[in-house]
Amino acid sequence: MKKNKKALITVFIIFGVLVAPHEGEFWPFSIFPMFSQAGNPWVRSHVRVVDYDENMINWKTVGADQLDGDVLSMVSLGVNQNDVSNFVSKTAEWNERALSNMRALLGEVTSREQIMIYKVTGSLHPEISDSVVISYQPYIFMSPEATILHPDLRGDLPR
């Protein structure tokens, strides 16, 4: 019994030491902070197959009913939707390497189709209390020949 107690306390201390400096996450230890901050705006991704003239891309942020093209299902590509969403929301700098990784993640569809990766944001409507606003911002256009970022994201990257 004493041995059990000592071992459990030791594992509990290791748990504390690992999760405390790692924002509550050190697999398999976690304090499960997901969903702890309710009501905050969120960012996800959405990918569509489009048919654009590369010089006339529509970069306007729209609602779900005004989207161009057809949904490109991530399941059909064998890609986890959460990975694409997190890639879009957590990539700080869209350099050549990040774009190449995004192409690798989506796979060979990027060498076959024209696709638009949307950055989707959702928030509670600031004035209408019972409404959720979801907007789709065209973010990255990929075709077999080119990768074009939303004008706000273009830094030193060649177009």
Partner: peptide, 26 residues
Amino acid sequence: GTGPLWIDGRHLWLWIGERSVDVLSA
């Protein structure tokens, strides 16, 4: 992270909206 008002039903609406985008995209 949020306090007792975490249970405000509008938070669930926001999450359902988030998941609707995820399921549609997936």
